[in-house]
Design a protein around this nucleic acid. Structure first.
Length: 472
RNA sequence: GGCCAGGUGGCAGAGUGGUCAUGCAGCGGCCUGCAAAGCCGCCUACGCCGGUUCAAUUCCGACCCUGGCCUCCA
């Protein structure tokens, strides 16, 4: 099952064929770090991490870069408000981003470049673009001349004429063309700045990605990803800069865009203020639940965040972990990526086929439901069946980023990730079971109520009474 | 206004020219001291109007509605 990806550039699904199978290059536009990121910002990190997981299974070397934007007017504003250097802001929130995203099960990218560490390549790219006639200096700025790039607008499907007609911003007088965009702009003394041939200044937003892609991945990369809201102007401008800086070479061969995360049907965005911070949600829910919600819809579709969605995710994961708990004593082997069972096992093959079809995670969840169902059925089967079914479920979970913790730990976690007094609970359960043995059910139910008041639910089974933290 | 997506059962959410999505919730039953878990069964779909077709939720056209981009934004 070859990997198929929907390429925004061609507006169709294409079989992924790398430029160099020995070195796959992927770039994802990461966050601007002036505050904690919201859950919408986590979506591309999660879904494209899944893409990279798939690629790593197929290819010996994948170089995955996810940048951090640490130069930006909003960062400047936050730093000035706080009365600190921008680095104090960016380092704090970049660290929080890395930590919070990691908790979602997202692997650390191979490269995590920052704009401030690439001023040399940024200035050099500006100079090259001026030298080749694709950019010009004016009033301390360097501007890209969109008239010199005929393909401008191809990615986003709009013409320069349309853009000018629809422009809602005042056109700076030093622009040759209203659609020209800034590569470099002057910085007053009170703002961060770097020396350049055009005076002390700072880069425009788009040029950093072009420079960092060039530095770490090369002139032509396989996959460039990001949110659909970046398609224009950010990615359009990246294409223009990079293509022109590299003598017309293709910049990125596959463009992938994730849909927006919404809250009550409206796009979640910092400027609208309707944000749920990842950092806060991680205090309220298990990280796996958040990851599940982010993968529940196909990555190109809009995804509406809601308490109901979170609860559904929790319920489904409870079901999966419940199977694993019932198979707790079964010693299942970990399946290697190259294990033939991936192709030979119906459930695993279906999972892999689903993900290979443009990361169809909803279909992947169907495969998971099948695998969990098989494992459930194996609970009362032979040890071989149990082992195989559990191994398959765990392998599938590992690929998707789920089910890798101990089931008992899963069921005993509290909302905030804290712990409960297990000894006390066990003691109460012993009291209750003594009452049950004496057929004093009133007493037994009283103890159950006491446990419920502590937020503990109990289940009597053939192998005794087990407990878990009750979910509301 | 221009450009681009999408409208599926109580909710979430895939997919397909002609048997089943799936999950969650709900309902009935089994099991259980009770409950939970589990098991068995049940339930409701494809915005609207035309067209193509033996057959359309699926293709085509119009319409209505929603969202995104056009300005910082994942």
């Amino acid at each position: 099952m070859p990997l198929q990806l929907y390429n925004s550039l061609s507006r169709r699904s294409e079989v992924f064929t790398p430029l160099d199978p020995q070195r796959i290059t992927v770039y994802l536009c990461g966050p601007t770090v002036y505050n904690y990121v919201h859950i919408g910002n986590a979506r591309p990190a999660v879904v494209f991490d899944l893409l990279v997981r798939l690629l790593r299974r197929e290819y010996p070397r994948v170089v995955y870069a996810r940048n951090i934007t640490d130069v930006d007017d909003k960062i400047n504003a936050a730093a000035q408000t706080a009365g600190v250097p921008i680095a104090a802001i960016t380092q704090r929130y970049a660290a929080a981003y890395r930590e919070d995203i990691a908790r979602l099960g997202v692997a650390v990218p191979d490269v995590e470049p920052c704009a401030t560490a690439h001023m040399g390549p940024i200035v050099a790219m500006c100079e090259r673009l001026i030298a080749s006639g694709h950019a010009y200096a004016a009033a301390g700025h360097v501007l890209f001349d969109v008239a010199r790039f005929p393909d401008y607008g191809r990615l986003s499907g709009r013409s320069v004429e349309e853009m000018i007609a629809g422009a809602r911003v005042e056109v700076a007088p030093y622009k040759r063309n209203p659609a020209d965009f800034v590569l470099w702009k002057p910085s007053p003394p009170d703002l961060p700045g770097w020396d350049s041939p055009w005076g002390r200044g700072r880069p425009g937003w788009h040029i950093e990605c072009s420079a960092m892609v060039e530095t770490h991945l090369g002139e032509t990369i396989d996959i460039h990803a990001g949110g659909i809201d970046l398609q224009f102007p950010h990615h359009e401008n990246e294409i223009a800069q990079s293509t022109c800086a590299h003598g017309g070479k293709v910049f990125a061969r596959y463009w992938l865009h994730n849909g927006m995360l919404t809250l009550d049907g409206r796009k979640m965005s910092k400027s609208l203020g309707n944000v749920l911070l990842l950092h806060d949600l991680l205090q309220q829910h298990p990280p796996e639940v958040l990851r599940f919600v982010l993968m529940k819809a196909h990555y190109r579709q809009p995804l509406d965040w809601s308490d109901a969605a979170v609860q559904q995710a929790r319920a489904t994961l409870d079901g999966w972990y419940g199977v694993l708990r019932d198979l707790g004593e079964v010693d299942a082997p970990a399946l290697a990526d190259a294990d033939p069972l991936w192709a030979g096992h119906g459930g695993l093959a279906r999972l892999h086929a689903a993900l290979s079809d443009d990361l169809n995670t909803p279909e992947a969840f169907v495969a998971m439901a099948n695998l969990a169902g098989n494992a459930r059925g194996a609970v009362s089967a032979t040890i071989e069946h149990k082992r195989d079914a559990k191994a398959a479920l765990l392998a599938a979970g590992r690929l998707l980023g789920f089910l890798q913790q101990d089931p008992e730990t899963w069921f005993r976690q509290t909302a905030a990730g804290g712990s409960v007094d297990a000894a006390h609970i066990e003691s109460l359960i012993a009291q209750r079971n003594a009452a049950r043995a004496a057929r004093d059910f009133a007493r037994a139910d009283a103890v159950r109520a006491e446990l419920a008041a502590l937020g503990i639910a109990i289940e009597d089974g053939p192998r005794g009474t087990r407990w878990k933290v009750a979910t509301p």
